[in-house]
């Protein structure tokens, strides 16, 4: 699957099928600091993604 990380617009390819929660663990991303989008809509951490599917990881932390 393709994972687009919106912070720096990097793209990661991950083999096999994984839950969204697992993908965040693999990438060492705190689920509290992001939203995960599939087809432009938020998905929960139990959703399984794989094959030629694509997800987006959107940081939500803002301010200064």
């Amino acid at each position: 699957m393709r994972v687009i990380i919106r912070k720096d617009n990097t793209v990661r390819e991950i083999e096999g099928k994984h839950t969204v929660g697992n993908i965040l663990r693999l990438l060492d991303i705190n689920p509290e600091a992001v939203l995960v989008l599939k087809d432009g809509k938020p998905v929960t951490r139990d959703v399984v993604v794989g094959g030629d599917e694509e997800i987006e990881i959107l940081p939500v932390m803002s301010g200064g």
């Binding site: 809509k41 939500v60 200064g64």
Partner: peptide
């Protein structure tokens, strides 16, 4: 929380600025 306000914008189709103020880096 900010996850909720971001999700709200996405669900309601509100187009907001994703990038952060360039001066806030390292705050």
């Amino acid at each position: 929380g900010e996850r909720e306000t971001a999700a709200y914008c996405i669900i309601k189709g509100i187009n907001y600025i994703l990038e952060e103020c360039p001066m806030a880096k390292g705050a």
